[in-house]
Structure formats: structure tokens, C-alpha cells
Amino acid sequence: MTKGMRENLVSYTFLAPFLLVFVIFLAYPVFYSAWISLHKTTIYTSWYYPFSEMKFAGFENYTSLLLDFELWWSFFLTICYGFLTIPTGIFLSLLLAVLLDNKLKGKSFFRSAFFLPNVLDLFVVGVIWILIFAPEFGLLDILLKKIGLGAESGPVFEKGLLGNAWTCLPAIAVAMVLKGAGFGMILFLTAIQNISQSVYEAADIDGAGWWHKFRHITIPLVKPIILFMVITGTISCLTAFTEVYAMTINTGGPTANPFGHSLRAANLLGYHLYRNFQDAYYGKAAALSFIILAFASLISWINIRIIQPRRK
């Protein structure tokens, strides 16, 4: 056996377990999903093995999804959700990073405190926020009443923030931004601390003020982090599910009435996918996966173009 063959054999032995799982659960599913998306479940489909007896449907799943106003509503909501969470998230993380970028005592305490919510179970955190946003007796209502907002009795927000079609999505966004800010903060902090101190010293000598240093040194140097956060933020918005499930108690939020359609006010794409899945429209769910993937690719491409126009 030659050395090359031996090396191949050894390498593939080490790779085998990983590749096995990869092929079965990541590579094959891409094709399998395409197959599923062209089929649909019927009343004859077995309850226990629905995927073995699906009926060929052509592009029906795609057309019915794309022609349904609900998908575009979900898409619109998802875009809104993205605009609510991503810029605020970046702003908040950058602010925290700048505040923590000094020789403050107890800095590591604050760093841990801000980062901690990131690692916590999203579902449970969502449920806690229900408690905070609850009408009349929720923490938020009580605090607002303490500072003299709202009527003497009764809730400050009718039905609570999560029960109102206009405020439901922003309320979810607030909870998620507060949960995720620490992650961005760590990234920015690492990037800022990697900037050589001498660059700032040179700027000091040139007479640059705090703002100038921030605007012309810090921002350009953390730009890759911003791009990273925008792209990962986009993807997490497009696949947002658990927060909606938890905070709307698996309803998709209160009813809204855009253009005469009765739809849910927090029915984000990811959640929409889950609902199709939950109702056993597996073909539609698979088709929706590909539509989401298309949206994700499109938006990521636009992001890269906007933030780094000269990048090739």
C-alpha cells in the first residue's frame, strides 16, 4: 500500500462519522426537501409515515404559497422585524462595547451580565416576557403606572403589548434585542480592543476629538463585524420561530386586518413555516423552506453590496 493510499484510508476513517451524519442529515436533506416540496400529503397518506405516500403535485406548493397573500404578509412582517431588531441590536451592542472599552473596575462583571442572556433558553425567556408584558398586572404596566402613565385603574395597554396587533411585533423585538445585545457587544469589544492603541494616539496628536476618533477610526475598523451582524441577524429574522411561538403562545399573535385579510400580527416567515408543518402540509413547508432560502440569499447579497460595495 502506498503512502498516499494509506493517508486516504486514515483520513477517511477519521472523517467517516462526521461525513456519515453530514450526508444523511445535511446533504441528502437538501435533495429530499426538493422532492418533498413537489409532493403533497393527501387524505390517504399514512398518519405515521406521511412521507412514504405523498402525491406528486408539481409546482403547486410553490404557486399556492406565492399566490397567497399570507406569505407576502409574513414576508413584510419579517422585513419589519428585521428593521426593528437589526439596527437597534447593532446600535445597542456598539454602545455597550464603547462604554466598556476602558479600564473600568468591575468591567468583567458588566461584560458577563450583558452576555449572559445570550446563552439562555429562548423559549423560557419568551415566556418570562409574557409575564412582564401582561396587561394590568405585568411588570411593565405597573412600572408605567408608578411613573404616572395610564389611567388610575385598568391596564395601561389594552390587552397588553402582546395582545395588540400594532405592538405585538415591536414587543417581541424589544425582548430579543435585549437578549441578543451581549453577543454583538463581545464581538465589537474584541474588535475595538484589537485596534492598535497607537492609531488612537496618532489621532490624539492630530487633535481629533472623541467623536472623530469614533467616526473615522472605530467605525471603519469594526465594519466587518457590522456586516457579520447584519447577515446573521437577517438569517435569524428569516428563521425566527421560538420567540414567536413562546410570546404568542403558539397563536402567531393577535389578529390584524391588512387589506381585508384576517391575519396574525406576528406571523413571521419562520413561524409560518412551522404552522404549515404543524398542520401536516409537509410539501408546502418544504417549498416554503426554499422560498425562505431564496429570500435569505437575496437579502444577504444586498447587504454585502450595500455595506461593502467594492468587495469582489
Binding site: P29, V30, Y32, T239, L273, F277, Y282, S289, I292
Partner: peptide
């Protein structure tokens, strides 16, 4: 994104 794999993985 991981969610894309949900349906086929479930299948």
C-alpha cells in the same frame, strides 16, 4: 440557515 433542514430532517 438551519431551519431549511427542518422538514427533510423530520421526514
Amino acid at each position: 440557515p438551519g431551519m431549511i433542514f427542518m422538514v427533510p430532517q423530520y421526514a
